[in-house]
Amino acid sequence: MMQVARSTLWLAFFAAILASWVVMYTQSIGMGLDLLGRPGPIAEAMRNMDPNMDMAMPMAEFGPLWTMWAIMMAAMMLPTLVPTLRAYEDLMTSAGATRAGWAGVVVGYFAVWVGFAGLIAVAQLALLHAGFVDMLGIARSPLLAGLLLIAVGLFQFSRTKEICHGVCHSPAMYFVTRWKAGAAGGLRMGAGLGAFCVGCCWGFMVLGFVGGVMNLAWMGLATLFMIIEKLPQVGHHVTRPMGVVLTLSGIVLIGWTTATGG
């Protein structure tokens, strides 16, 4: 019976991830984008639409935009939770962890990311109406894209990144030091882990404005990196090299823009 409950929860978890990617793919194709986020004729026309025009445009409205970001958070961040959930399962015999608590961890974690989705949706609308990004969430200025790359790259070297990544990288230690039993306890611990994870990974969400928030290739690469960053054996070895790559990419982009007058 316990094995059936375990299998059911894991299947539901992975089904939610798969469904999120299917929805994002469907939305991207429906908007006329390819997997690299490159716009076709329809999407190109959408990019140049005025967000202040008196017509229904979901990418210029908070509700649909928040929903899109929330689904994106499920697609990108739930896969990175797998090592954490495995660590929680290891405590089921020694600390009285339960399947209800396991589910609570997932719900609490995702609730924090849904909240972050609302914040970044507000940020995207502000950038859109200020003319800094287009309707697809792509930075209109290479200078802005370069600055975002540099900012996220430098953050990889910060003390905040180190602390937050330390928690995400060693979830078992987090559970041991902040243990709460039951479903409510799992919910609280999941929310705490979600807060640290937002502190660790917010920059990769912001980088969506560099290549477009509907760029599935960026989503896939960012998800893969964040999974690797949380692996116990290699996580600490990839954070700063990625910071170097992002910072240099930003510098090169700004330098190229300045040299070409773009």
Rank of each mutant, 00 (worst) to 15 (best):
V133G: 10
F204K: 01
E229L: 00
S141T: 08
D54T: 08
V238F: 10
Y88P: 06
H129N: 08
M68K: 07
R188K: 14
E162D: 13
M46R: 00
V198H: 07
M219I: 09
L65M: 15
Y109D: 02
Y109E: 03
P241I: 05
S141Q: 07
M24K: 13
S170L: 02
G194T: 03
L246P: 10
I163C: 00
M73S: 11
H129R: 13
E162T: 13
V206G: 02
T26G: 15
F116N: 01
V23F: 08
L119R: 03
R178S: 14
W66A: 15
G131E: 02
H169P: 01
C197I: 07
E61L: 15
D50I: 00
L127R: 03
M226F: 07
S249R: 08
G220E: 05
M57F: 00
I42S: 12
G235N: 06
L224V: 14
V252N: 06
M135L: 08
C164I: 07
S20Q: 07
M1D: 12
T84Y: 00
A139N: 11
F225V: 11
E61P: 00
V107T: 13
S141L: 03
L78V: 04
P51F: 03
S249N: 08
M49C: 00
V105C: 08
A191K: 00
V234K: 04
A130I: 06
T160G: 06
A151D: 06
G131F: 01
G203S: 09
V106N: 12
A15W: 01
I138V: 15
T8P: 02
P79S: 08
G192A: 05
E229R: 04
F209M: 15
S94P: 03
V176F: 07
G243L: 05
R99N: 14
P142T: 12
Q27W: 08
F204L: 15
N215R: 04
L248Q: 00
I42K: 05
W113H: 15
G63K: 04
R159N: 06
G108T: 10
M135K: 00
V206M: 14
K161P: 13
T247C: 07
R86K: 11
M59E: 10
L144I: 14
T93W: 04
M53N: 01
T247R: 05
M68G: 09
L128V: 11
